[in-house]
Design a protein around this nucleic acid. Structure first.
Lengths: 194, 194
DNA sequence: ACAGAATGTCTAGCGCTGCTAGGATGTCGT
DNA sequence: ACGACATCCTAGCAGCGCTAGACATTCTGT
């Protein structure tokens, strides 16, 4: 009774992850508009209703992909920050660059995290830890005695998000990204308490 | 031959605007996901195919709404800039605040302009004049002798867009918007050549 | 004034979407 | 061996963007 249901639970968890991975791969290969429940079901070699025994709907699948992404983003930013040269603003510069790289290299994943409608709670009690960690990397770029470091981080993140999304949708030229990044970091890090 | 076809053209243009207005009202009342070609057709009291004799598809209707929006945004920003108190950074502050107000007060219109996929060309030869004008309002906030004012404007706009969109989707708390705006303007306007 | 051409509009339908009810299939505990 | 249970699939619903083809209506040339 227990060994069997344990195995079932394992299989179930495995299939859960299989669905999330398939959705992500499909999205990264052809964009989210190509991720339909039918194609996804075909890809995991199950019928459509199986998806709904794992997730409440398509949005929940997207959210699951997003949460995976938050973990990767947090690790990515952390690595960049720790590898940064010492000196004022160097950590911030490295983290910002890493953020933009993440957004341009995994556009579909980025979309799931920050653009598509999601039920993931931001800045609340039930915020997923990986998401907190990612935001924390921005906060850590500012001095601990800076009482407004969360505010600094929010604005930095907003600016980076704007740059990422506007250049991805060709609303600002992609070519100028490097200059914009440089200017942003200079202005933010120029503050005495950064 | 001419008077008749002129009248027809007038009626046609009138109906064109009727469709755009209806789409916008429907989107502002219930969000873009509620704007379907069927509901839109019903609202303008024509059948669906009529929409397609005016626009290449639903995306084209959204783009038409967006272009209307660019004109209004440009006027809105211009008004704010001209009414601003003199002094360094005052114009920039007023324009930034006006931008955020525009985004929060007309979220559906803002979405059409800056989030939904669109065929509108940004930063190119065939960029619609109202869009150029809106961007120009940001540029005008910086000193004419500043060779990098376009860059300044791009970063400012990106940051505002990020703040607008992240707070609209509850990814950063809406409450802190005022503080973020203040911080952003201070950092950008703090530059010697702003 | 009237037949024919041209224009405009609508009905009906295609292939797709997310999602679900109900039945068939197979597995398990006793 | 067998009843109970869990699992999975076939088939279908309502709605989507979009379009072909029939139907009126209006204009044009004689």
């Amino acid at each position: 009774m227990s060994a069997i249901s344990e195995r079932r639970e394992r299989e179930r968890a495995h299939r859960h992850q299989l669905i999330v991975t398939a959705a992500r791969e499909l999205a990264e290969a052809e964009g989210w508009e190509a991720v339909t429940t039918r194609r996804l079901a075909e890809r995991v070699e199950y019928s459509q209703p199986v998806l709904y025994s794992h997730f409440n709907g398509k949005d929940a699948i997207v959210s699951a992909v997003a949460i995976d992404g938050f973990g990767e983003l947090a690790a990515h930013l952390r690595r960049a920050r720790q590898a940064a040269a010492p000196g004022p603003g160097q950590a911030l510069r490295a983290v910002c660059r890493a953020y933009l790289d993440f957004a341009t290299e995994r556009p579909a994943l980025y979309q799931a995290m920050f653009i598509l409608p999601t039920d993931v709670k931001f800045a609340s009690a039930e915020t997923p830890p990986p998401l907190r960690a990612a935001f924390g990397e921005f906060v850590s770029c500012f001095r601990p005695n800076n009482e407004r470091r969360e505010l600094f981080a929010e604005v930095t993140w907003s600016a980076l998000h704007g740059m990422a999304v506007l250049s991805d949708s060709d609303r600002i030229p992609a070519a100028g990204q490097e200059e914009r990044l440089d200017f942003l970091v200079t202005q933010i890090a120029g503050s005495p308490t950064s």
